[in-house]
């Protein structure tokens, strides 16, 4: 091989943390469905929710930031996840990160706050199906019953031995978004698949 072989292609293929795992997810019993939503833009946002920057940020996002602990809001293509009293994770479509980061930083201006691109820090999984709650209950101590964790609930907790963000996306506990750190993603995927071994055809 010589140096000529190195073509500075603009087309380097990104690889998600769970690249190659979908076939294993597809083999799960049909009471659950797991799909990696790769390459979502993710921005960590820090801002004082009662300060002037919060309003400017809300304009960019098209919605006020959720201030209820352990909740989330949808705003168009954005999902705004409460992570702390002055901290949110903004989920946006693939590729939307750089522009949104710039817009949010401009909105904050000189006010206290921070915007950090963490798109590749974590990956997201969609977990759906009538056995979703049972599957998570095998490793999660949070009560995900819809009465306790209604749609929009967003909790940071542990599932098995990894930290995770769980977002409830419906009122029947059968649609969750799971956000997990990239280095733990393969462990978590293996754990999910193993947890699904026992699930049968019916809920």
């Amino acid at each position: 091989m010589t140096a000529e072989h190195v073509s500075p292609s603009k087309l380097l293929r990104p690889l998600s943390p769970l690249d190659g795992w979908q076939a294993a997810f597809d083999a799960l019993p049909n009471v659950v469905a797991v799909t990696e939503i790769a390459f979502m833009a993710q921005l960590n946002l820090r801002v004082d929710p009662s300060g002037p920057a919060a309003g400017a940020v809300a304009k960019v996002l098209g919605s006020a930031l959720p201030t209820q602990p352990c909740s989330s809001t949808r705003s168009g293509e954005y999902q705004l996840l409460w992570l702390g009293p002055d901290e949110w994770l903004i989920l946006a479509p693939e590729g939307a990160g750089p522009e949104l980061e710039t817009a949010l930083r401009e909105a904050i201006g000189g006010e206290p706050g921070a915007v950090t691109d963490v798109s590749a820090q974590r990956t997201t999984l969609a977990l759906s199906g009538c056995a979703s709650r049972e599957l998570l209950a095998k490793g999660c101590s949070i009560d995900l019953h819809p009465k306790v964790s209604p749609m929009g609930t967003c909790v940071q907790t542990l599932v098995a031995q990894t930290g995770i963000i769980i977002v409830a996306r419906d009122e029947t506990a059968s649609d969750f978004l799971l956000v997990v750190r990239a280095s733990f993603a393969q462990y978590f995927a293996a754990w999910l698949i193993d947890a699904g071994v026992e699930l049968t055809g019916a809920c």
Binding site: C70, S141, Q156
Partner: peptide, 17 residues
Amino acid sequence: MQLISCPWCGPREEAEY
């Protein structure tokens, strides 16, 4: 497993702290 109430998130298992 004891529960400890986070002033923000509410009761969680002590292993989270």
